[in-house]
Amino acid sequence: MIVGLLVALLLAGVVSLWASASPDGLNRVAGDLGFAGAEQASGAQDGPLAGYEVAGIDSRWSGGVAGVIGCLVVLACTSALMLLRKRSTPRTVGGE
């Protein structure tokens, strides 16, 4: 379990620096077929982590730091959700 977590952090924090910067399948098709222009800026565009860059960090590690933060947020949210699911099993009194 710990090993898996370390692998995930390593992938998001370090390996992601070498990820392909080419447009992904959907963006490429949108560009080729001429509906890419319909894209509107997300309301989260000005957030401190928007675009997988940490505001204030300019080095190439910015994306890695953003990735690690993202991993921890996802881990925390999912774990909280799982805890809620477990608590509402029939074993406990009450629940939904």
């Binding site: 898996g4 977590l5 995930a8 952090l9 990820a19 447009p23 993202g70 991993c71 881990l75 774990s79």
Partner: peptide
Amino acid sequence: IAPLAGLVATFVFATQMLNFPVAGGTSGH
């Protein structure tokens, strides 16, 4: 399953950052 689910979500998030190149200047994750 509960701790594994946290790990799976974290792993999926991390892996979705890793765009791999496919044909002709396009990537996917």
